[in-house]
Structures are given as structure tokens and as C-alpha cells.
């Protein structure tokens, strides 16, 4: 059966146009002053958690490991980015971009560092190693006050995280990860999730791909961390504890592991919901935990399962209906 297919360059152009439209409209709304300070900070926070959830999804959903130290990578990136911005080496747009790249690369280096011991370990032991690294990073930040500001925090970070910047980063993160997962590298990573031994015997370099997935995951967590610093203007080590890692993991699992759309939706819901429920005050966290247990019992694979949204697919379906209307198929 011939299905109507949109050529790849057209698909990418359609998506790029939609993203650009979203960014411009969003930016116009945000700068028009229609949205208050509190709400706009939520909007930016949502974007940062989207990057974190989508990046963790690479290691959890696609590679099939269970990292419990994502906040550690985020912390490394946050401090690296903030220190770069504070150093005042550059200014303007190059400064912003260079800071984000510094943050990402530093976090990715740590990802490699953690990925290498991961070769020897499986499953839950890997989880513990990442948990341990996350805690060590936090303890190190507390104990090196001359560089990181210690427990009171690192202050006066330039507030670069505007709507346009953070959502552009979201779009770039999703595009990069999507393209990576559709390439042969992505398929190799997926094969490790399905069965490591079988993948290895098919000639896939398990070491290389595990470390690759880990460092990509860490890179974007680092970028998100830098944006986080750029949003708050101050970084305190307490923001990057074990519970912060868990919070990101919850987003990924609740959204559905291996579904980018799920991660994005869950990040938006779980970041915005507690603020929307502020009137409920002390019952807020109880509702949150009940929601978590409830969703897991009723739908263990997460809200979206492994479903992913594809604009091109929707257009193809619609287009297919138009073009094939009563004429029995469309020749390619």
C-alpha cells in the first residue's frame, strides 16, 4: 500500500517554521506585559525542566539505565556556566552562547567520567554509582567555597534566561536528540536497551554507545543547569540534592519512558501544577504523591507510553485522506 509521504526536507522546514512561529508569538506575548512576573518565571522554569526531562530520557528511556544523579550534571553545568558568565570574558550574545556551551561540555566530561565505570556495572548498581556521583558533586560544591560560594551560594549571576533563549534551547535539545535517535547511533542505543548481550554480539560497541548516551544526556542537563542559574541569579547547593534528581526522574517516568512528548508534557504539568495548586497549600504535596502512585498503578508505562508526536505523520494522514479521496491510492 502506498502511503502519502512528505519528503524529509519539507518535514524539517514545516517543523522549523512552526517552532519559529511559536517562539516569536510566545516572545511577543511575554514581552507585551500581559503575563505577570510570577507566571513568566513559571513559564521559564517549565522550559528548563523540559530540557532536563528530555535529556534524562536519553539515558533512561532510550538507553534503559536508571541514573539517579541527573541533578549532579545540572549542578556542574550551572556552576560552570555561571562562573563563565561572571568572569566577563565576552559580552552580548557570544557570552551567552559560550557560557551555555561551557556548561554543556563540562557536564558532558563528567558524563564520560561516570559512563566509564558504568561499563562494569549493570542495572541498580549503576543507579547507585550515579546517585553517589551526584552526592559527591554536591558535597564538593559545599566544601569549595572559594570557587563555588559554598552553602550560602553563588551570587550575582547575569540573568540571561529570557523566554526566547530558554525555549530556543528546548527546541534545539529536542531536535538534536530526535535526530540522534533517528540515526544509526540512536538505533544502536535502542538496541542496548532491548538486549545488551545480543547487541554486543551483533557488533555494536556497547562501551562507546553507553558513554555517548550518558554524555549527551549530561550535556543537555548542563545547559539546563546554566539556564537555571541564569534564571535565578543565585545558585545554592541545596537545589541539586538527591530529591532534585528524583523529581526529574519522576517527570520522565510519569510521561512515559522513551517518549519525548511524554517528558515534555510531564515536565510542564509537574512544574506548573504545584504552583497552580498553591491555594491548597499543605495538601499540595500529598496530592502530588497520590497522583504519582495512582498513575503508576493505573498506567505503569506512564501517561504517553512510548507514543511520540510527529507533525509530519499527522499531515501525511490528513494529506493522504485528501489525495486518496475515492481514487484508490496515490502513486508515489
Amino acid at each position: 500500500m502506498n502511503r502519502f509521504r512528505i519528503p524529509v526536507p519539507v518535514r524539517y522546514s514545516i517543523n522549523a517554521a512552526l517552532i519559529a512561529a511559536f517562539l516569536l508569538i510566545g516572545n511577543a506575548i511575554m514581552s507585551s506585559g500581559m503575563i505577570g512576573r510570577a507566571q513568566s518565571s513559571v513559564v521559564i522554569q517549565v522550559a528548563i525542566y523540559m530540557i532536563l526531562a528530555v535529556s534524562l530520557n536519553v539515558a533512561t528511556g532510550y538507553l534503559g539505565q536508571l541514573p539517579l544523579g541527573h541533578a549532579g550534571f545540572m549542578a556542574v553545568g550551572a556552576y560552570a556556566g555561571a562562573l563563565f558568565w561572571k568572569s566577563g570574558l565576552l559580552s552580548g550574545v557570544p557570552d551567552v552562547v559560550a557560557g551555555l556551551v561551557t556548561a554543556g561540555v563540562t557536564a558532558a566530561l563528567f558524563g564520560v567520567l561516570i559512563g566509564i565505570p558504568a561499563l562494569r556495572l549493570r542495572g541498580d548498581y549503576l543507579a547507585i554509582i550515579t546517585l553517589g556521583f551526584g552526592e559527591i558533586i554536591r558535597v564538593a560544591i559545599i566544601n569549595l567555597p572559594s570557587i563555588t560560594g559554598g552553602t550560602p551560594g553563588l551570587r550575582n549571576i547575569p540573568k540571561y534566561s529570557s523566554f526566547l533563549l530558554v525555549y530556543s534551547c528546548v527546541a534545539l535539545t529536542c531536535t538534536f536528540i530526535h535526530m540522534m535517535m533517528k540515526s544509526r547511533h540512536g538505533r544502536a542505543i535502542l538496541s542496548l536497551r532491548e538486549n545488551e548481550i545480543a547487541a554486543e554480539s551483533c557488533g555494536i560497541n556497547t562501551t562507546y554507545y553507553k558513554v555517548l548516551a550518558f554524555s549527551v544526556s549530561a550535556f543537555f542537563a548542563g545547559v539546563a543547569g546554566a539556564l537555571y542559574g541564569g534564571m535565578l541569579g543565585i545558585l545554592v547547593p541545596g537545589n541539586f540534592d538527591f530529591m532534585a534528581s528524583i523529581h526529574i526522574l519522576v517527570m520522565v517516568v510519569l510521561g512515559g519512558m522513551g517518549s519525548m512528548l511524554g517528558s515534555i508534557l510531564a515536565a510542564a504539568i509537574l512544574t506548573a501544577l504545584p504552583l497552580a495548586l498553591q491555594s491548597l497549600n499543605e495538601y499540595r504535596m500529598i496530592l502530588y504523591s497520590l497522583l504519582l502512585i495512582g498513575v503508576m498503578i493505573l498506567k505503569p508505562s506512564g501517561l504517553m507510553g512510548t507514543y511520540d508526536f510527529s507533525m509530519a505523520y499527522v499531515l501525511e494522514k490528513l494529506g493522504g485522506r485528501v489525495f486518496t479521496n475515492g481514487k484508490g491510492g496515490l502513486s508515489p
Binding site: 533512561t60 526522574l249 519522576v250 519512558m257 504523591s289 497520590l290 504519582l292 503508576m296 508505562s301 506512564g302
Partner: peptide, 13 residues
């Protein structure tokens, strides 16, 4: 992993 998240949920609860 769903079981793990449930355990985290119970802990928070």
C-alpha cells in the same frame, strides 16, 4: 522502574 517510582511516591506521601 514503575515500582520504583511508586515507592518514591509512597515515601513522599
Amino acid at each position: 522502574i514503575s515500582l520504583l517510582i511508586t515507592a518514591i511516591g509512597v515515601s513522599l506521601l
